[in-house]
Write a protein that binds this DNA or RNA. Structure first.
Lengths: 199, 199
DNA sequence: CCTACCGATCGGTAGG
DNA sequence: CCTACCGATCGGTAGG
């Protein structure tokens, strides 16, 4: 399906290790020598696999963006379902991407500003499109009467904010499974959005 | 009231300018030469006012922590009020700190990991105490029946997450005033926490 | 994948 | 507050 070239195993390993370092120390504070040491080789050797430090960040940020869009599309494509159901599924899909690779997610959320132009602008445009998709789904729910909020844009931002804090505290070995987390988050957020039956 | 020594005007100006740079470029990617240029002086001259780059970060992070604690204490000290009211006021106080100085707030939220030990550990302990204060307030509301959630700790994290995204999109010249933002956030979050009257 | 190295830039200091 | 500078470290390259 994808038009991207296959990624060699060694390159994938570099990306994974770099992602973990970028997450815990930040992109700017992570040196290529640290990365090389973590991989058991010399700094210069990295450059037979990658072109630059930023290239790694670029791949991580845009790869995650694609995952979020794919998840959203799969969760919401069925127009026949109630909007509330589609929104719940979109929330769960978003959480699944966050928990599947919380290190890459944290980099996606916090390190994108170290991209240089034009990548930085392209990234922000993608992020805006993603937020708009949530906003429009919520607005549609308001118009059908399934959801209630005075401001769909505001609600979308708050909703994504609640979800995006997850990588900062999520631990794969925690007591809650990804599915339980997704369900609870959707529950807590939607019970604030869903119109409660007025008897 | 405070035991901290007075901060000279020039030092305060350095802190403010550095905070703006740390926010937009990140602590590690901001050089002392950039900071000096932004202030109209040479890099070496900074050190007659400050001891180190990290000293600035330390002051910003711990200063904000104090603001958050003060706001929370003021908002919740009156035990006679309903827990829901006190929680609403705590949310509004938190938002007020975030909007009063969104640059410093962003640094507080994202750059603290560049503190070295023991400051980093002390900072995290303060943050934990603050989260615990919200958690306990929510738990108390559950026990009195004013609030409902399956997991007070989870609810507290989600609540703070929603609030803490604010500095990333808040603009002082935006269409919503700080008070309106605080009110809407409290409304959206509490209508998910408040038990709705079952007719 | 390593050795050896490049020019640039970093945080910070000495002396005035 | 400036000039002049320190040792350390940065991302990246050449040549093998």
């Amino acid at each position: 399906m994808s038009t991207a070239p296959p990624i060699r195993p060694r390159k994938a390993q570099i990306d994974r290790t770099a992602t973990a370092l970028f997450r815990s120390r930040g992109f700017a504070a992570t040196s290529m020598r640290e990365l090389a040491t973590a991989l058991g080789l010399e700094a210069g050797s990295l450059y037979s696999h990658i072109k630059s430090k930023e290239e790694i960040l670029h791949r991580v940020c845009f790869g995650l963006a694609e995952s979020f869009f794919t998840g959203f599309a799969t969760a919401t494509f069925d127009d026949a379902k109630p909007v509330a159901t589609r929104l719940r599924q979109a929330i769960e899909a978003h959480v699944r991407v966050l928990t599947d690779d919380s290190a890459a997610s944290a980099v996606f959320l916090h390190e994108w500003r170290h991209l240089s132009e034009p990548a930085r602008g392209e990234f922000l445009a993608l992020r805006d499109r993603y937020e708009a998709a949530f906003r429009e789904l919520i607005a549609k729910g308001v118009s059908t009467g399934e959801l209630h909020t005075p401001d769909a844009a505001f609600a979308a931002l708050t909703l994504l904010a609640s979800l995006n804090w997850l990588p900062s505290w999520y631990r794969p070995d925690g007591k809650l499974s990804p599915d339980e987390i997704a369900h609870r988050l959707a529950e807590q957020l939607l019970s604030g959005l869903l119109r409660t039956p007025q008897a």
